[in-house]
Amino acid sequence: MSIRELVILGTASAVPTRHRNQNGYLLRWDGEGLLFDPGEGTQRQMARAGLSAHDVTFLCVTHFHGDHCLGVPGVVQRIARDGVRHEVRAVFPAAGEEYWRRLRHASAFKDTGVITEWPLSGEEATVPAGELTLTARPLSHPVPSYGYRLAEPDSRRMIPAELERLGVRGPEIARLQREGSVRAGGRTVTLAEVSAPRPGQKAAFIMDTRLCDNVFALAEGADLLIIESTFLTPEAALAEDYGHLTAAQAGRVAAEAGARTLVLTHFSERYGDEDEPRFLAEAAAAFQGEIVFARDLLRVPVPKRRP
C-alpha cells in the first residue's frame, strides 16, 4: 500500500528535554524512506515509532551540528546489524565530510556495504531517487548547511466524461497515455483533449537557517513544509545571530511559497508545550493553511493531491 507521511522522531534543537528528543524525521514516500537529521537517540525513537532500519533508503544530513547528526552512528550500525540489503544513500554537505567519516566509523562494528555517499556542493545539487527528484540548496547558517526538496514529476489525470464523449474506451485509454494520441470515432484524439495537468506532490525540509532566497525556493509549492521555528519573535535578534528562524518567519515562508501544510519544529529548550499556542499564533498571522506543532512520535500525512 502506498504511504506518504512524516514520522516525527524528535523536535528539540541543541538540547533535548524530558519531552523532546533531538531531531529526527522519517519521510515515508511510497517505497522510499528518507531519514532527515538523525540526532542523538534516533535509533530508540524509531523503535518506539514502530520503524526499522529496513524502512530507510536515504540518510540525509543538513549540517554537522550535533543535534542534527549524533544519531548517525547508531542508525548506520543498525543498518549493518539488521542486514539491510537495499542501497541507502547518505547525503550530506561535502564541506563536512570529515565529520561524516567520524560518525560513519564512530566505533567498532561489522560494517555494511549498502551505504553509498552523495556529498553536496554548489548552489544546487540533485540526487536520484527513482522517479522522484531530491534537490538540495545551501542555506544561511554559521556552518555549511543544505535544505532539501523532494518532488515527483508532473503528470496528467484522465477526464472520464471526455473519454466517453470522444469514444475512447478500454485498452485504448492505456495506449493514449503511452503514445499521446489514438484513433477513435473516425478522428484522432489527443491526450490533451481528455486529460488535465496533475502537479506532482512535493515536500520540503528546511532546518537551521536565516531567511534567504533558497528557503523560499525549496518551499515553493510544497504540499508538506517541515521547517525549523527555533524561536518566537521576542527572540528574533537571537535567532538572526545564531542563524535560525522564528515561528513568524516560518509562517511567512509558507504563505509566500504557497505551501499547504506547515510543520513547525526544532524548538529551543527555553519553550515548553504550554508555548504551543504562541508558536501557532505567530505562524498563523501570515499563513492561513494547516499548521502542525511538531511533537515526538507524531505522524503527519502528506496532504491529498490538489484537485
Rank of each mutant, 00 (worst) to 15 (best):
V302T: 01
G31N: 11
E240K: 13
R101W: 05
M46C: 09
G130S: 10
V76C: 02
P303Y: 07
R104T: 08
P142C: 02
T246D: 08
G96Q: 02
M207I: 12
N214H: 13
E193F: 06
L150I: 14
L6D: 05
S107A: 15
A94N: 09
A184K: 00
I226V: 15
A283Y: 03
H244P: 01
Y271K: 06
G272I: 00
G83D: 06
L264T: 08
R78F: 07
G31W: 11
L191C: 10
D154Q: 10
Q43N: 11
E164S: 13
A47V: 12
S268Y: 04
V75D: 05
A259C: 12
L27H: 08
R198H: 11
A125W: 05
I206N: 04
E131L: 12
A283W: 05
R270W: 11
L34W: 10
A239H: 01
M46L: 13
V253D: 01
E256H: 11
L280C: 03
V300M: 00
P144V: 02
H63Q: 11
H86N: 05
V114S: 01
G31Q: 14
A192G: 09
P301A: 07
G258F: 07
H54P: 02
H86L: 03
H54K: 11
Q77F: 00
R4S: 14
T17R: 03
H68Q: 10
H54V: 03
E240A: 14
R20C: 03
R210P: 01
L132I: 07
V84A: 01
D30N: 13
M1T: 12
L232V: 02
A47K: 14
A14V: 13
L59T: 03
E32V: 07
H244D: 01
E87I: 08
A284C: 05
P138I: 09
R299F: 00
S145H: 14
H63T: 05
E123D: 15
R85V: 10
F231E: 04
E152P: 07
H244M: 06
Q43I: 13
M158C: 12
T133H: 08
R85G: 10
L218D: 07
V7H: 06
R187E: 09
T209N: 12
F216I: 08
T126F: 12
S121P: 05
